[in-house]
């Protein structure tokens, strides 16, 4: 394969990726946002009249799921340019909920310019990033959900195998997550065959891993030599089945499913790498003979789990 052909391929792959991800970023353009703790900010786009803008009665705010419960606005403050208004409430708002702000008869320069409706919610990208972070650190599948331990102990003896496994696993995990989501959403759910999901998910994973193995062997023998050994092992990793099952249970969309896959994969890779670092050092230590090998590895994992407990409750957005 020539270098130029490779470049075109990489470019094409990137273009497809950008196309796929673009709806996520389009969501950044939103009309309202959360302010500090107890407030919402809405952007009118035109300078509004001060007397109108400061009148609490012009705003009607409610949670999207509870349109009949109106939240009382405590105070309104306009920015110096009178383009945005900050509504303050008595109680802290629930940041994972969606709020609707209805404003009637917006007055700009003495004229009424019509009513508006603003939807305030957490940015999609923030939600997805939150899922990735949660799966990676807070609910790390190895240290807090205790999944994938078999492979975790099996391949964490050396750093280079750990890295190889981590990368292979992350790639396979992402693809499986998205494929299983599609299967569940478009085949199992409409046909009301959800009771078949275990058998279908594990079948999909097995077929996918087998196919990846065969294709990689033909297309890129070099990569196959590096990763091929791990590919077969992946099927016995619980995480690969747990992620689609969690996705199906919490009715995640395609991007959420993909994010959970990425988070789980990267989290697993991190866990493997950390463990491999310790175990390489452990080989040089004088461990009591009855503890040598797996027992001491378990104790070390316990210490890691204790450390990862510190991440729980973490939230960035």
């Amino acid at each position: 394969m020539s270098v130029r052909a490779l470049h075109t391929r990489v470019f094409l792959a990137l273009a497809i990726l950008v196309l796929l991800v673009s709806p996520v970023f389009a969501d950044f353009v939103k009309d309202g946002s959360f302010g500090k703790d107890k407030s919402l900010v809405v952007d009118f786009g035109v300078p509004v009249d001060e007397a109108w803008g400061k009148d609490k009665a012009n705003y009607k705010v409610f949670e999207k799921t509870d349109p009949d419960i109106v939240l009382p606005v405590e105070s309104v403050s306009l920015d110096p340019k009178r383009l945005t208004a900050e509504l303050t409430f008595k109680d802290p708002l629930n940041r994972s909920a969606e709020y609707v702000v209805e404003v009637k008869d917006i007055m700009s320069e003495g004229k009424a310019v019509g009513s508006g409706k603003f939807l305030v919610k957490k940015a999609r990208a923030a939600v997805l990033f939150g899922i990735i972070l949660a799966a990676m650190l807070i609910n790390n599948f190895v240290f807090t959900k205790y999944l994938g331990l078999c492979i975790f102990f099996g391949v964490s003896q050396r750093k280079d195998t750990a890295i190889g496994m981590g990368i292979t696993f992350t790639i396979v995990m992402c693809l499986t997550a998205i494929m299983c989501w599609a299967l569940f959403r478009f085949v199992l759910e409409p046909l009301r065959l959800d009771f078949l999901k275990i058998i279908v998910f594990i079948g999909t994973t097995a077929i996918f891993v087998q196919a990846a193995d065969t294709i990689l062997r033909k297309v890129n023998p070099f990569l196959f030599k590096r990763l091929g050994v791990y590919l077969v092992l992946i099927v016995t990793n619980c995480i690969i089945l747990a992620v689609p099952l969690i996705n199906a249970d919490s009715s995640h969309g395609p991007f959420e499913s993909l994010s959970l896959g990425v988070g789980a994969g990267v989290g697993f890779a991190i866990a493997l790498f950390l463990m491999a670092c310790v175990r390489e050092k452990l080989e040089l230590c004088r461990v009591p003979r009855t503890f040598a090998g797996l027992p001491i590895a378990f104790v070390v994992t316990g210490l890691f789990a204790l450390a990862f407990l510190g991440f729980s409750g973490l939230s960035l957005f």
Binding site: F143, T144, Y146, P288, R289, T290, F291, L294, P295, I296, A297, F298, V299, T301, G302, L303, A305, L306, L309
Partner: peptide, 22 residues
């Protein structure tokens, strides 16, 4: 009963099995 405890207990039981065998 925290995650950590499970790992510790298994590690120690494994070591105990090794010790008995020894």
């Amino acid at each position: 009963i925290l995650p950590t405890g499970g790992f510790f207990v298994i590690g120690f039981i494994m070591a105990a099995f090794n010790y008995i065998e020894y």
